[in-house]
């Protein structure tokens, strides 16, 4: 049986991906005209001829919030009862003070920037998002809240799925091979916290490699080899550098 990756086809807008009767899994990225299925975006098309399903994974694009997404936001403004967060979406997100503080506040007596000021970083979850208003995020939940340590790596939001990998495999690989804590937010911001600077450098390079080569099959193996090779090169572990 062929691997999932081998069945992916690079498509561009206007390209007829397949003809017939299929179920569209990614409605914004595939349109149907008569019996033709046309890609609307630069991406990787996946056609399943058994289940008659078609989808396109974008290779370019901005972050579009979805309910339950974990995102990393930067505070851009503190209002009277809420903060505005840049989450790299077309809309800024709102974080209500009552949610963040867990209690009502009196705007006349309390200045919200005391708790979160412009430039602060927050790990949050998308709680509300519909067509009529911008996203609302919550910090209620395990591990959510203000981020006080670590480094943020930014990648294209459409490449996040590859950093996570199938069933979290790539994410696990990155964490176990480098010993870093890795939090992948859906909006393409990745929070990393590493035992030392060398490992942090290797992890950042590995993440950027995933972003760059996301569409090329065999990614997981290449990333694993890359991390091991870098660790050997920097004397972090012993052994021979694998060569081809």
């Amino acid at each position: 049986m062929q691997s999932q990756e081998a069945q992916r086809i690079l498509v561009v807008p206007g390209e007829v991906v397949v003809e017939g009767d299929y179920k569209i899994l990614t409605p914004s990225y595939v349109i149907r005209i008569d019996r033709k299925y046309i890609a609307t975006i630069v991406g990787l098309a996946q056609i399943d001829n058994e289940s008659k399903e078609i989808g396109v994974i974008p290779l370019e694009g901005c972050y579009i919030p979805q309910l339950e997404d974990i995102v990393i936001g930067y505070v851009v403004d503190a209002g009277l009862t809420s903060w505005e967060l840049d989450i790299r979406a077309p809309f800024t997100a709102t974080l209500y003070a009552v949610d963040f503080l867990g209690r009502p506040i009196n705007p006349a007596r309390e200045d919200l920037s005391k708790y979160l000021a412009s430039g602060d970083t927050v790990l949050a979850k998308v709680e509300v998002f519909d067509r009529n208003r911008g996203p609302v995020v919550t910090t209620k939940g395990k591990g959510l809240g203000k981020i006080v340590r670590g480094t943020i790596v930014e990648i294209s939001p459409v490449k996040v799925a590859r950093v996570i990998g199938r069933k979290g495999s790539m994410h696990q690989l990155l964490a176990s091979e480098t010993g870093c804590e890795v939090t992948v937010a859906r909006n393409g911001r990745i929070l990393i916290s590493c035992p030392n600077r060398e490992l942090e450098d290797i992890l950042v390079m590995a993440i950027l490699k995933i972003e760059r080569e996301a569409h090329i099959p065999g990614l997981t193996d290449r990333v694993k080899e890359f991390i091991i090779r870098e660790k050997v090169r920097r004397g972090l572990i012993g052994g021979e550098t694998k060569t081809d």
């Binding site: 561009v12 807008p13 206007g14 914004s28 990225y29 349109i31 046309i38 609307t40 975006i41 630069v42 974008p58 290779l59 370019e60 694009g61 901005c62 459409v158």
Partner: peptide, 11 residues
């Protein structure tokens, strides 16, 4: 527009 990842019916 295509490079920006904005969905389009065609180029």
């Amino acid at each position: 527009l295509a490079d920006a990842g904005i969905p389009m019916r065609d180029l």
